[in-house]
Amino acid sequence: MKNILLVIITLQLFIFDLKSQEWIVPDDKKSKLSTFPFDDITRKAGEKLFSVNCMSCHGTPGKGNFLNLVPPPGDPATEKIQRNSDGEIFYKITTGRGQMPSFKSVLSSPEIWNIISYLRSFNKTYQQQVMAVITSSAYPGADIGLFLLFNSSDSTVILRASATKGNSTVPVTGAEVKLLIHRTFGLLTVDEAKTTDKNGMATFRLPDNLPGDTSGNIMVSARFVNEELFGSSTKDTSLCAGIKTIPVNLVADRAMWNNVRKAPVWLILTYSLGLLTALGFIFYVLMKLRDIFIVGETLSSEKPSKEK
């Protein structure tokens, strides 16, 4: 009896351990499908992307030469990874977990699908399911536009999304939108993603300490979170919403390491004059000594003649 209990406990612990290691993917993400069928072109593109982004940890698919990490990254050609649905792989690449970095800012959705296409080429039994309608757009056939307005009184950015079809314009409601700010090497997300209200509007609060350019302008970009549903329309505008930032010139001030180049004129002049005076005095003394020497020479040469 005791033994059985022990076995049950260890088994449960084992199951619990397995469960904690399992990577839970939300149900709505599991069924996500590629919008395009996989072919040789997508596989080629995927192979290239895989070698740049994934190979350093996962190794070459089918070779099992992945890194010796805890937990192991695993070979993508094995059954363990291949039994994931397309949506699950897509989710895992996008979000990342632990040592696996998130690729949502590195790879676009089509690029991730290309990688999945490449991975599926190692699975002989795989049958691809493509999204039934290529894009099940929320506003079919309409031009979706985004407009941004900066409210300086409470430093908020108001976004309005509208769908135009022919002459009629309707607000885009219930769409998740995000606000991004252009920085040198990427886009900085400000505030959280917001959902548009019944007027198609969403309000973003900007942080107070957002540096802009010399006149306080910042390049703002708005886009939909769910681009498959609402399209990839983006709005890039320059808003006067940042702090006026005068760039700090790190070599402008005088310092120990730039004293030659940054020295003021009066200092250079005083120093040079002082140096010249000192050197001139030494030179003057030397000339005087020379004079004395010459006088001595002439005197000593005159003396013997007098003796004669």
């Binding site: 970095p101 949502k104 800012s105 920085r183 040198t184 990427g186 540096p211």
Partner: peptide, 17 residues
Amino acid sequence: FGDENENAVTNGTTKET
């Protein structure tokens, strides 16, 4: 890596700013 004037840095792997 980034620009201190912009008060933003970007991760080289995830490209997140």
